[in-house]
Amino acid sequence: MIQLSNVSKIYPNGARALSDINLKIGKGEFVFLVGPSGAGKSTLIRLLYREEKPTRGQVLVNNRNLVRMREHEVPYLRRGIGVIFQDFKLLPNKTVEENTAFALEVLGMSTREVQTRSRAALELVGLGGKGKSFPHQLSGGEQQRACVARAIINSPGLLVADEPTGNLDPENAWGIMDLLYNINKRGTTVIMATHAKDIVDQMQKRVVAIEGGRLVRDEEKGAYGYEV
């Protein structure tokens, strides 16, 4: 499903974010990406939906080469990938339902279908009654769930999350993990960058650790491995 070969990323300002990363992730896997702040986790995540391009090496997602991909093909790649952001990235001037519907309207779906599907997605993340609220009227946990709803509404094959629980209290964090766990069980590949030791330790999933831009550990049913 995902394959990174000899990937290095150096930002235009000279900062070296990733060095020679080789990583293979199969369909339906659940992978935690751990490591100290600034290790390169976010950069790696951003490579997957081509917000960034690697300086060297190849990135394959769904057998498509993202390095050689043309600009006009990028939107179609992204439609198959759900992205959950630490800062939610909800549009402040759209209601929760409009925010989730957004990902479908982009595809030119009929209003009726957009409505049915976005209501179903909100129901799934437990925001059934909040569709008409604006993001600022919701708690942090609810906003993050709205973000999840938007990411999964399109039934993507791949879900990437950059510290989705970073801004949440433990209870809300576990709510989000429940959602991701269930989505993964239905066949979606999930890749999640995180600092949440207790979550990683308890979930018993594959753990990939990055330090200073290098891949230093990759174990099945791993643990967080850093002191908090």
């Binding site: 006009h72 992204r78 439609r79 992205v83 990235k89 957004f102 990902a103 982009v106 399109n154």
Partner: peptide, 9 residues
Amino acid sequence: IMKLVGATN
């Protein structure tokens, strides 16, 4: 955000 959810230019 539009770009990231796959909207064409």
